[in-house]
Each structure stands twice: as structure tokens, then as C-alpha cells.
Design a protein around this nucleic acid. Structure first.
Length: 920
RNA sequence: GCUCAGAUGGUGGAACUGGUAGACACGCAGGACUUAAAAUCCUGUUCCCGUUAAAGGAGUGCGGGUUCGAUUCCCGCUCUGAGUACCA
């Protein structure tokens, strides 16, 4: 029989499921390897052809590692809490659990169609209570911890209490809120229970605090910084505003330095590491006190050049600093900046604006009186919300000073400040008191020392990263395992986990503006205490899920210690780069936290990470003729002729276009208005135009993997997606070319069959040429997979099969090894051929063949002969021939001398086994 | 503006440490088989000039450099994509 992909693929998918072929156990006799995909949010649209790209690559890698002798953990699950299901629920009233369930079923079907080797017995769903029980449990551990800067790790809150009881705050170096009190042991013991709890909240790694948050009115929830893009919500694109609210936060800033340092220890793409570094945003500088106004600066050496202080319009001291005379203009300025949206403020960088408060403060280093201005170029959210302005060294300060006629003092003798600020650090200091004559390298330490002596400042490292807001005023998320008593939050008992998501009548906020959970009837802890009504953010469940796969059904712990000790961390993680500042940062944070408390063993969760490129859409267009009035007609012009006519492009479904040629009959049938369409053709064909756009329904360029599997089979689709190009590169999807891969698999199938498609292999000894073809591919695939170059492996498979076909190879030993080598890429066809070859187990239990270099050894090499670097001819010579003999041979060869043109060679370069170059 | 990635035939791409640029595939052209079509197979396919074949010239975004030799290394520029942005 010819290659019957449909029945073969069905048969083996059923076999794998029935025999649990890919179920994996903790097996300490084998080395472990953990291959993980970023688990998907199961959206209603299902998978398009771009989604499986990473899954295919990871599956090939997992299958390869398996036949290389590793015990491979390769699981899959669903990040199933989230906004879209809830938005849908609001519109339809249907419980998000129901739509989520249906979407998961669809995803599972689509994933199964592709023949992935996931161990489905370990599936996780973040919205299942037996999963989110442990998300809640981890939250409780975080709540019960503080960050000890002395040991540089998180510790149970009990060690903090002990310190407070015995030593007081003087001996405590912790990451905590700024308003934490200074306490003696006696002060602590004198506090009431309530006061103590309120104080501890300032230390806990997750805490409730009045803070400025990103509020999105359209979604009815707060958002984390990474969920806001340019002033709009990442999901849905709704405007976001700043609002003061009582909110749960995670003290991720405690881990800023470790998150930064850890980046140097992991094998991630450079751009991704760069994004995380920028997000953390470390800057080394100093805090300086201008009386009661504190500023942060990275150039404390410029302190003598300060000619004014600029503070953000939102700064808390604005009212206090404003003199009665200036009140009117300050109020007007604040009103004006408030009107400007976030976006305007960002777009309008060039306009200088500000207002004088009327107050002056003293420069601590020289006692100079300097004016305090408010200016919207100072951001309330960064540093202290106040800056010391040095117009000679900072361009923004320079423009501001010019605009408002403030002095500009040069501070370095090499500074060029006639037309703009000069931020360089060259030269020696002038106008700078105690650092006059010093260089930049010397000056900073001197200034900081002096400031410390005066009590007016100290060295300080500042981070851009903020603590992460951890509450969402939404329904479809994990309930926070907290109740309130006397206005303070307490954890529920561990034995009461999981705290189940209660039923509500509507998925909308209550009349009084409480989150949807406020609608739950009789929902109180121990029938009397109010629960926290916000739920956890989307990233909660995904911040630890890779541990759950290690031991997915454990009721006693999030994962058994032995399982964690064996599987340790993720060896290879594949997913999109859009999670750079969200999931990938929070996961590293939770991982470090769990390690501090001794629950896990590794400092970093994902050793090696690869971002698969985005698959864009490739839209097709028909060109519709318009008449003199510009009105569209029912005539369509083929692409090559469109410039001869007045036309407008119209999107056309890519599924009725092949190699840019429109299927006219299908086009006519696609819409009533096209039924009587007429066409201006080229060579009897209608060619479409094309453009690369995002893949979306509205652009009619969505290609569904199910359709391609129906037509070519999963093995072809898997290999074609890899063949498309390097995994990490973004590229438009184009189904042109899939035929080539399909033909390859049919050709491979033919190697095992005679002309009437009867299975036939021979037991003869393989020939030298056959062995060479085989061992070339054994080596190549090994090298390619190890460097994630899947596209080049596919080409090499084609070359190998072409060679074996030319050799008319039907040798069993050769073909059997070919099956093993190809099996990670095209598992179904390989299982079938493996079985036909007489094997009774799955090909995934086979061993990858050992490469033998002896088969690739050549006797002769066809030397390219170049004259002055240009290749002119080839001469085949034995590889054993020494360079000097090669030179002699080449120089007397007529093939070469005819190019000499009477000249004598000046020089001859011979690289043994590579090239000969004659310089004339 | 800054940071990063990239630019190779009609198309997707290959060339791993500087050594025969264009592997492999798509598409296209021609041919075989067929009453015909599909499928399959064979041949050709970077460009220019020439053409029976040859022979020649140019060529990896642009301009320079290093080298016997550069898609690969260095300098400058152009364009494309991504990230980020008044961060003090």
C-alpha cells in the first residue's frame, strides 16, 4: 500500500494512549531531562498553525533525548484562569469553568492530532482546586516570610518575631516598608496584638498596602506594571489610570539583586536577558538630602553644579513647599499636567514646562540656596520623585534652565556647554569646593564621604522594578486564602485549603463597587469573618507549575521532596518572548523564594530557554476593479495586470489560494456577491497579491493545523513547520512548499516497499555507500538537534533519502537505523515502519545509533583550485598527499597552468583537504 | 533617542572555527508516461553577455578595510523587525 498517513497516524496515536507509552516515572538509574513548553491559555479560537511551532520543536527534542538514554519529563497543561473566559461569562452568563472546559477539550484534540509525546497523566490545570490549593499554600508561605538582608534570603516570620522580642529593630536588616517603626524589645512587647500584626505586615513578603496602582475601569481591575503597555491594558487595549487603593503586593524588590545576578548564570537568549535587566533597572548612585527633600542621583560628583531642585507634580511635599504668592501658578500647572494623559506626556518630550514653588532649600555640600520647582519631566514613581538639577551635565535640566533663565554652572574644565549639556566625565573639577582639581574617579568617594559626615546623604543602589501588585478585582482566579478580623488580614488555617472559588449570580462588581466575589452568598470564614474579595493575578498559577508536573497528584505537598530532588529544574524551556517581564520574572522570583525556605533545590528554574519565532500571517488579496466614479465593480484583475487598471485590494481567504493562484470556483462559491464575478486573467490563471500581517480571522489568513493534517498528515506538518526556517526567527506562514516534505515522506516509505507497495527489505550486508549515507545523517541530526537547528536536519533527511533511493537501498540494517534517527521528527510513520521491520515495542524505546566516523573517511579530495582567490577548476588528489606534493602536482598540471598567462606564481597556498590558491 | 536582532536567487532558506556562495525544498520552464488530466519520473533554473557546446564577467543591503582568500572579521552608512523610553 502507498503511504496511508491517516490510518497510520490514528493507529499509533491510539496505541500510545492505550499503552501509556510516554508515561514517565522517577527512575534514578537514568539521567533526567526536563523539556517544558510554556503551557497555553485555552482560548476559544483554538490553535492556529503558529501555536504548535514550539511544541513540535520541544517534542522532537524530548523524543531525541529519550532514545539517547535519558529519562525525559515532557508534560503539558493549561493556564486556565484568565480574563477572556470571564469576559465571555459576563456577556453570556455562562460559568467560566464551562467554557474553559470546552476550550481545553478542543485544545487537547488539536494537540493529540499532532502526535506529541506528552505524559498526559501529569496534566495540570491552574483553575482546578487540587492545583490552586497549592498556589494558595505558596501564597501562605510568602505571607509568613520576611527577607533577611544579613542572610540574603527569605526566612519564616517567626525568626523576625524572635529578633524583635530579644534585640529590637536595631539588629534587623530587612527589606520592609519605609514606615516600619524603630523599636526596642520593650517597645515590641508593649504593643497590642493588633499593633504587632500591623507592624509585621510591613515586613511580610506579600502584604496589604495603600499604594498607587494601575486601575483599568473597563476591565474593572488593577493591573501589574507588565500588564500595562503605553498606558493601555495589554489585554483588550483599554485605558489605564493611576489610583490609590488598598492592594496586595508581592515584595519582589527584595529579590532585585538576585534576579539580576542570576541572569548571568542561565542560558537564555541575549535580548530576553537584556529586557529583564532593563526591567530590574539597577542604578548605582547616592541619596542626597536637601534639607527635608531627598533626591536620588547617579552623579553625586555634580553636586556643586546643582542650580535648582525639580520635583514631580504629584510629590507629597508640593503643598507644603508652595508659597502663598506662587499658589495660583502652581495650582494651574498641576491642573494642566493632570489633564495631559499618560500618552501625551510621553509623546510630548520636547516641550519644557514647570512652575516655581517659591521655596528654597540648602545644598548640603556648599550651603547654596537653590530654588525648588515642580516639573512634569520628573516622574513620581521613580527614585524619590525629586531630582537635583545639574544643567551643565544633563540635557533635560539644561533645557529647563535655559527656558526659565536659571543658572548653568560648569563643573569640569573639559566641559563643552555652549549649546547643550555635556554629560561626559572628562577633565578636572572646577567650581566644586572640596573636589576641585580631582577627576571623576576620585571625586565620587570624596563627596559621599563628606555627605555621610554631614548626615546629608549616603551611597544608594536604586532599582526601577516595583513590588508586584497581586490582587485582581475579578472572578475567574484563585481566591486569596485570607480573612479579615478587626481590619487586619489573617491567613486561613492550612487545613481549610483549598479555599474554593464560590458561586456568584453575576460576574460583575457589586453595587457598592466590591469585586465579584462580594456577590457570593454566606461566604465567610468560620461563618463570621470576611474573606479577601480580590483574586490572584493570572501569573500566580504559572509561577510554580513546573514543580507540579514533577508530582502532579500529590495531596500532601505541592510536589514530593524526592521528586523535586530528582527532576530539579527545567533543562529546556520553549516559549514566546512576550513573557519576558511577566511570567519569566515572577517564576524566577517564586523559585528563589521556595529555595530559600528549602522546598526546592535550584536557584533558577529554567536552565536553557528558547523563544520560538512568531508565525505571522500571509494575507492574500484579490484586486477589485473600480469604475470611473470609484465604485467597486464585480470584476477582479489578476495581480500582474492590476497596474493597468483602477483597483482596490480585498482580502481573500488564504485557504482557497494555492501558490498565489486563486481557485476561482471556490471564490465564486464563497459569497453570494462573488457568484457572478468576472476575472481578468494572466495565462488563464488568476494571481493574488500578498502581504505579511498578523494572523487573524479578520484578515482571512488563519491556517488551521487540523486542515493540513487532514490533507498531508501530522508527520508532514511537523516536519514542514521545522523546515520553514530557524526556530527562533519570526516568519510568515506560507503553505507553499509543504508538498516537498510530503513527497519526502512518501519517498522514505517507498524505500521499504517494492513497486507494487509490498513491504520488502533485504538482509544483505550494507554497502560502503549505504553506510556512508546513514552515518552522515546520524552525525548531522545529532549535531543539529543539540544546537536546535531543526530546519537543517530536515534538509539532511531529504538528502539521505535521495541518496538511498539512488542507491536502490533496501537493506534492513540501514533502514532500521534510519527509522530511529527520523522518529523524533516523524513519529507515526516511523512507528509503523518499525513495526513492519518486525519490532514489537515502540520505536521510542529504541537506542539512537552510534556514529562511526570510519564510514565517512574519504581517500581522495576534489581540491578546488583558485587563481587569485577565484575558483577556476578542480583536481582530485589523495588526502594522504602532503601539502608540498599537492603544490608541485598542481603547478605542473595543464588544467592550472593554462590560467598563468605566462606569469610565474608569486605564492601558492595549500590547505590540506580544503583548497589550493595560486597567487599570480 | 537608546538597546538588540537581521538583510543571501522569483520564494523559504543552507554554507558549523575565514576556504568551491546558493545545499535542501517551493515555484517556474521543458520533456517522458497518458486519449486527457491528476499523480509520478527525468532535465534545466543566481544574474549579465554569448550560445550547439564552450569561454567570459558580475554577485551575499551600500561604501571602505584586514587577508593569498570575506556571506563569515573590523570601521562607517542605509533599510527592516523587535524591545524600551523624560529612570535623574
Amino acid at each position: 500500500m502507498d503511504y496511508q498517513f491517516k490510518s497510520i497516524e490514528q493507529k499509533w496515536q491510539q496505541y500510545w494512549a492505550a499503552n501509556q507509552t510516554y508515561k514517565v516515572t522517577t527512575d534514578t538509574t537514568k539521567p533526567k531531562y526536563y523539556v517544558l513548553d510554556m503551557f497555553p491559555y485555552p482560548s476559544g479560537a483554538g490553535l492556529h498553525v503558529g501555536h504548535p511551532l514550539g511544541y513540535i520543536a520541544s517534542d522532537i527534542f524530548a523524543r531525541y533525548k529519550r532514545i539517547k538514554g535519558f529519562n525525559v519529563l515532557h508534560p503539558m497543561g493549561y493556564d486556565s484562569f484568565g480574563l477572556p473566559a470571564e469576559q465571555y461569562a459576563i456577556q453570556t452568563g455562562q460559568h467560566p469553568a464551562i467554557t474553559t472546559q470546552a476550550n481545553i477539550a478542543r485544545y487537547r484534540q488539536q494537540l493529540d492530532n499532532l502526535g506529541f509525546s506528552f505524559d498526559w497523566s501529569r496534566e495540570v490545570r491552574t483553575s482546578n482546586a487540587d492545583y490552586y490549593k497549592w498556589t494558595q499554600w505558596i501564597f501562605m508561605q510568602i505571607f509568613n516570610s520576611w527577607y533577611n538582608l544579613e542572610t540574603d534570603k527569605a526566612e519564616p516570620i517567626s525568626t523576625l518575631i524572635l529578633k524583635l522580642e530579644t534585640l529590637g529593630t536595631r539588629e534587623i536588616k530587612a527589606v520592609c516598608d519605609e514606615d516600619a517603626l524603630t523599636l526596642q524589645p520593650s517597645d515590641w512587647s508593649a504593643m497590642t496584638h493588633l499593633e504587632k500584626e500591623a507592624e509585621l505586615l510591613k515586613y511580610r513578603l506579600t502584604f496589604l498596602k495603600q499604594s498607587t496602582v494601575n486601575w483599568c475601569p473597563a476591565l474593572g481591575t488593577v493591573l501589574a506594571n507588565d500588564e500595562v503597555k503605553e498606558g493601555f491594558s495589554e489585554r483588550g487595549g483599554h485605558p489605564v489610570e493611576q489610583k490609590k487603593m488598598m492592594q496586595w503586593s508581592m515584595r519582589i524588590t527584595a529579590y532585585a539583586e538576585r534576579l539580576l545576578q542570576g541572569i548571568n548564570t542561565i542560558d537564555w537568549p541575549e535580548p530576553l536577558k537584556e529586557i529583564q535587566k532593563n526591567w530590574i533597572g539597577k542604578s548605582v548612585g547616592a541619596m542626597v538630602k536637601f534639607q527635608h527633600i531627598e533626591v536620588f542621583t547617579t552623579r553625586v560628583d555634580t553636586l556643586y553644579g546643582v542650580t535648582y531642585l525639580a520635583i514631580a507634580p504629584e510629590h507629597e511635599l508640593v503643598a507644603q513647599l508652595t508659597t502663598p504668592q506662587q499658589k495660583e501658578s502652581i495650582d494651574a500647572y498641576i491642573a494642566q499636567t493632570k489633564k495631559k494623559s499618560e500618552l501625551d506626556r510621553m509623546a510630548d518630550v520636547k516641550t519644557v514646562s514647570g512652575a516655581f514653588t517659591g521655596s528654597y532649600v540648602t545644598n548640603p555640600i556648599n550651603g547654596a540656596q537653590i530654588p525648588v520647582w515642580i516639573a512634569d519631566y520628573v516622574l513620581a514613581g521613580y527614585g524619590t520623585g525629586a531630582v537635583m538639577a545639574v544643567p551643565s551635565g544633563d540635557q533635560r535640566d539644561y533645557l529647563f534652565a535655559q527656558h526659565f533663565n536659571l543658572p548653568i554652572i560648569p563643573i569640569l574644565d573639559a566641559q563643552q556647554i555652549d549649546t547643550q549639556a555635556d554629560p561626559t566625565k572628562e577633565g578636572k573639577y572646577i567650581n566644586s569646593g572640596i573636589i576641585n582639581g580631582l577627576t571623576y574617579k576620585e571625586a565620587t568617594a570624596v563627596i559621599i564621604q563628606e555627605l555621610e559626615k554631614l548626615g546629608a546623604g549616603k551611597a544608594k543602589i536604586n532599582y526601577r522594578m516595583r513590588d508586584a501588585i497581586f490582587g485582581r478585582q475579578r472572578y475567574w482566579g484563585e481566591p486569596v486564602p485570607v480573612y479579615f478580623k478587626d481590619g487586619l488580614p489573617y491567613l486561613i488555617a492550612e487545613s481549610d485549603l483549598p479555599l474554593l472559588l464560590p458561586e456568584v449570580d453575576k460576574y460583575l462588581p457589586t453595587q457598592s463597587g466590591e469585586p465579584p466575589l462580594g456577590r457570593a452568598k454566606d461566604w465567610k470564614y468560620k461563618h463570621k469573618y470576611d474573606y479577601e474579595l480580590s483574586t490572584m493575578p493570572g501569573w500566580a498559577g504559572s509561577s510554580w507549575y513546573w514543580f507540579r508536573y514533577m508530582d502532579a497528584h500529590n495531596n500532601q505537598a505541592f510536589a514530593d521532596k524526592k521528586a523535586i530532588a530528582y527532576w530539579q529544574d527545567v533543562d529546556l524551556y520553549i516559549g514566546g518572548s512576550e513573557h519576558a517581564t511577566g511570567h519569566l520574572l515572577y517564576s524566577r522570583f517564586w523559585n528563589k523564594f521556595l529555595k530559600d525556605l528549602g522546598y526546592v533545590t535550584q536557584e533558577e528554574p529554567f536552565k536553557k530557554l528558547i523563544n520560538q519565532g512568531m508565525i505571522q500571517g500571509r494575507s492574500s488579496f484579490v484586486h477589485r476593479l473600480v469604475d470611473e466614479d470609484g465604485k467597486p465593480t464585480n470584476t477582479f484583475v489578476s495581480f500582474g495586470l492590476k497596474n493597468n487598471h483602477q483597483t482596490v485590494p480585498v482580502h481573500v481567504d488564504v485557504n482557497i489560494v494555492e501558490n498565489d493562484i486563486l481557485d476561482i470556483e471556490k471564490f465564486k462559491a464563497s459569497r453570494d456577491e462573488y457568484a457572478k464575478a468576472e476575472f481578468i486573467l494572466e495565462n488563464g490563471k488568476y494571481f493574488c497579491g500578498h502581504e505579511v500581517e498578523k494572523m487573524s480571522k479578520s484578515k482571512f489568513n488563519v491556517v488551521n493545523p487540523d486542515d493540513l493534517i487532514e490533507r498531508y498528515g501530522a508527520d508532514t506538518l511537523r516536519m514542514y513547520e521545522m523546515f520553514l526556517g530557524p526556530l527562533e526567527q519570526s516568519k510568515p506562514w506560507n503553505t507553499n512548499g509543504i508538498e516537498g516534505v510530503f513527497k519526502f515522506l512518501r519517498k522514505f516509505w517507498k524505500l521499504f516497499h517494492d513497486d507494487s507497495f509490498t513491504f520488502k527489505v533485504s538482509d544483505q550486508n550494507p554497502t560502503k555507500a549505504e553506510l556512508k549515507a546513514l552515518h552522515k545523517i546520524i552525525k548531522k541530526v545529532e549535531e543539529d538537534i543539540e544546537r536546535f537547528s531543526f530546519n537543517t536536519s530536515v534538509s539532511s533527511f531529504m538528502i539521505a533519502v535521495n541518496e538511498l533511493t539512488d542507491l536502490k537501498c533496501d537493506n534492513k540494517a540501514i533502514l532500521q537505523d534510519m527509522v530511529i534517527v527520523l522518529s523524533p521528527y516523524a513519529p507515526h510513520i516511523c512507528e509503523e515502519l518499525w513495526a513492519l521491520l518486525g519490532n514489537t515495542n515502540s520505536v521510542s524505546t529504541a537506542t539512537y545509533p552510534t556514529f562511526n566516523p570510519a564510514y565517512l573517511v574519504e581517500d581522495n579530495f576534489n581540491y578546488p583550485i583558485s587563481i587569485n582567490g577565484k575558483t577556476k577548476t578542480n583536481i582530485s588528489l589523495p588526502l594522504t598527499m602532503e601539502a608540498i606534493d599537492v603544490e608541485l602536482y598542481v603547478l605542473q598540471s595543464e588544467l592550472v597552468t593554462k590560467y598563468f598567462d605566462g606569469k610565474t606564481p608569486k605564492k601558492v597556498i595549500v590547505v590540506k583537504g580544503r583548497i589550493v590558491n595560486v597567487v599570480l
